[in-house]
Design a protein around this nucleic acid. Structure first.
Lengths: 356, 356
DNA sequence: TCCGGTCCTGACATCGATGTCACAGTTTGG
DNA sequence: CCAAACTGTGACATCGATGTCAGGACCGGA
């Protein structure tokens, strides 16, 4: 009769009914293997002191049920309570700079079986706290963040609890923690020095929104270098608040059409550089006005002229950040430090033109 | 004496000691607010029937302890058991195509309070099952994946359990589920037709590894279009197995140096297109040999000549995939369907040269 | 005044796993 | 040969939350 039993009979059968829509638990595996749940737990986690025969039976049962243990249920009771999960907050996951950082972090993380949550902020401070809270509710083991809000003081309690925190790309305010940044001021100074060395004195600065910390740093590096070179900065065109390609494009064209157009341009962010390249081309000035950009741009070497840039190293920034997180998870209790990743001037042509 | 009590006194105080290193639970909040845990739960989850005064007390207590509820502990008991988490498997999070898809998915997800895990596979089949298992252990509500393994049959039990599954960019084998892909064959055919219309007959094909499903489709589209045009495909150079810029570069140079160099090239993937552009330039052939690429390339319009491409729409692919996941989570039980996202031919110069 | 219905609240079982501990059987060592 | 140590195993409490349910306070209407 067993093979003929109706559905209600089946559902009431002593062995837990194998409903394909139900997710199997250790209890189900244990029942099928004829052992206790704790033994299943031991087998799944590779703990010692289980006889080979039992291991085999449990493995077979788990396999046949397609059992996947619930990591979070385990963490609830587990001693260290680690979720093997990291949270990453970036400008946008669609942006190549963020992508390279993300990839580096993932490379270190996946080697340790750690999964990575990523969230885009679009430089919107309101989204920052929401995103952090979403990660905290999911009990991430650590947080890597590109800061946009004015102050990160709201993270202090979390930091005190021992959650590793690393700020990348931008320095935090109101928190003492690990920080990994590019050498923004020095890179900007190097770009400026490069243009000065080719004889430029009238160098325009195209900058991002001034509430972004790196944008300030780059402007500072630019102006300080001009100061060191004895160039009066009073009549130097310093344009800020550009946040996309289009704004940069328009700003550059306005500059070219101004009374005293610059002989060189320092564009302090990759989208701004692209907007500037477009502007120069539209006005046919790409072979006369010099350009150096901050942050590398894809295919910059294939343009004519190639675009000279101060390249950042986003992969290295991500790598260092992830390394810091894991060092702290492994017990490092040293004070938070700032790690500076050097930038590199890559000359490709656009920055090596002399003023006409 | 209270204000003078020593640390051990403090630790043993009847009110649970407020250890800043301990993560507060609802129990702690309840104790501080002088209510039961269930009431805290009600307040935190915005359930009705709690007096305004109690709500205020609980909120204040939660705030002062910096309490963040444990989402996963809640899910354990919660009826639907949703983790508000999605898993995404892509080629590489550092790749702009993946980045755009990822961003689209995140945009829909974050509007619903859903967090997104991303993992890179580097087209390595071994990593696929590991990554999927990592997501399953974390109880993601749905899975969006760019497939690399031969068969996705191992996902069948999960699919039967009702976990929404969407395959993006590449069609799965052995599973019937939602699929979102570009129109690879049609796009390749359009590119080929475009080159034919400019009089080319000797068109070389540069392709990716043939175990990648989209690579096969694009080759098929190319060859079928030649067939329709009555061009004998026997002596058409079809080179496959190119998986990076360098390999493409070398292959193209070899073609140019062969006995009968092609008058046009169809490069069927973005890295291959970049390698091809480099090769043409190195041999000074970029103004004589036509080129059309599959998949857009950043700054392609600023090159000289601009690179004509068949552009995919990764954002739309991601958007559709996420929309399907959420539709299924919302109860859609219809059979899995394939959604084809159209490609678009963008003419910029490199594809509009006639054979010399 | 009494009854039934809201409103507010907390005790308790429970979700799926792991930590602790107890216990039986088997070795080991003196 | 027996105590001590080790091996293999499962019962049970527990992690942090939510679902269920029951009970007391308070309301309006008969």
């Amino acid at each position: 009769m067993t093979s003929m039993s109706g559905p209600e009979d089946w559902a009431a059968s002593p062995v837990d009914a194998v409903d394909p829509r139900a997710r199997p638990t250790m209890k189900n595996v244990a029942a099928l293997a004829g052992v206790g749940v704790k033994t299943v737990s031991r087998v799944i986690n590779g703990e010692p002191n289980v006889s080979p025969a039992t291991v085999a039976r449990v493995r077979a049962a788990a396999e046949s049920l397609d059992f996947h243990p619930d990591l979070h249920a385990g963490n609830l009771r587990r001693a260290d309570g680690r979720s093997s999960t990291l949270g990453l907050l970036v400008g946008s996951v669609g942006n190549p700079f963020s992508g390279a950082m993300h990839r580096a972090i993932e490379d270190l993380a996946s080697a340790r079986g750690v999964a990575v949550f990523a969230s885009s902020l679009d430089d919107d401070p309101d989204r920052e706290e929401v995103a952090v809270s979403a990660f905290l509710r999911r009990r991430v083991d650590g947080l890597i963040l590109t800061t946009v809000s004015k102050s990160q003081g709201y993270l202090l309690p979390e930091l005190r609890r021992g959650t590793p925190l690393v700020f990348v790309d931008r320095e935090p305010a109101g928190v003492q923690a690990d920080v990994v940044v590019s050498d923004n001021a020095a890179g900007a100074a190097a770009a400026t020095r490069h243009l000065l060395s080719y004889g430029h004195r009238r160098i325009a600065f195209l900058g991002d929104r001034t509430d972004i910390q790196t944008a300030q740093e780059r402007r500072r590096g630019f102006l300080e270098e001009l100061g060191r070179a004895g160039v009066a900065t009073a009549d130097i065109p310093v344009i800020t608040g550009l946040h996309d390609e289009d704004a940069a494009n328009r700003a550059l064209i306005a500059l070219l059409e101004s009374e005293h157009p610059p002989t060189a341009v320092f564009s302090s962010q990759n989208l701004i550089t692209i907007g500037a390249v477009r502007g120069l081309r539209e006005r046919g000035a790409h072979h006369t006005v010099a350009l150096v950009g901050f942050d590398d741009v894809p295919l910059a070497d294939l343009l004519e002229p190639g675009v000279t840039v101060v390249a950042q190293n986003p992969y290295e920034i991500g790598r260092l950040a992830a390394a810091r997180i894991f060092a702290r998870l492994d017990g490092d209790r040293s004070a938070g430090r700032t790690y500076v990743v050097p930038t590199e001037l890559i000359t490709r042509g656009s920055g090596e033109m002399r003023p006409k």
